[in-house]
Amino acid sequence: MDLFSGTIGNLENSIQYASAKNNVISNNISNADTPNYKADKVSFKSALENEMSGLQARTTNERHLNFGEEENRPYRIVKDASTTYNHNGNNVDIDREMSELAKNQIYYNSLIDRMNGKFSSLQSVIRGGN
């Protein structure tokens, strides 16, 4: 039986995604004045589309690809080299990055609260409901 129907695993993956996004945003902010720096972003959609495009129904031969070997992250970090906001070739929009950072912190904190709730429920069950 899977504990909490996989909820804890899903929360763990979401927390890893939020942590990676926080690291990328922080890196972008710290390089806001670096000449020719191009901002990174964490992209879930492109990783999902990439995985969906290569799916096969089943593997019946040892030469078929194993989907789990390459990368287990459900997101990808991509560099946005298509724009330039500053005269020095940099494309970090500090207002956008600060907004994304605040939004991501709220998301991360809500995940942590939900995870704490799951563990509190488990602790209550172990103690017999007290």
Score class of each variant (00 low, 15 high):
98 M>P: 02
115 M>C: 06
103 K>S: 13
62 E>M: 15
38 K>S: 11
63 R>Q: 15
48 L>T: 04
96 R>S: 05
41 K>P: 01
123 Q>D: 08
16 Q>P: 00
106 I>T: 11
118 K>I: 01
51 E>K: 06
9 G>A: 10
24 V>W: 05
32 A>T: 09
77 I>Y: 09
111 L>W: 01
49 E>Y: 06
51 E>Y: 12
119 F>P: 00
34 T>L: 09
106 I>H: 07
29 I>R: 01
89 G>R: 12
1 M>V: 06
9 G>R: 10
40 D>R: 09
3 L>G: 03
58 R>V: 12
16 Q>F: 11
34 T>F: 07
83 T>K: 09
55 L>Q: 14
81 A>G: 10
14 S>Q: 11
54 G>S: 13
35 P>T: 05
90 N>W: 08
95 D>Q: 06
50 N>Q: 14
24 V>Y: 02
114 R>H: 10
55 L>N: 04
59 T>D: 09
65 L>D: 14
16 Q>I: 06
87 H>W: 07
98 M>G: 03
121 S>F: 10
108 Y>E: 08
64 H>M: 15
55 L>I: 14
65 L>S: 15
47 A>F: 10
81 A>S: 14
112 I>M: 13
75 Y>T: 05
124 S>N: 07
73 R>K: 15
78 V>C: 02
50 N>E: 12
121 S>I: 06
64 H>C: 10
58 R>T: 10
123 Q>H: 03
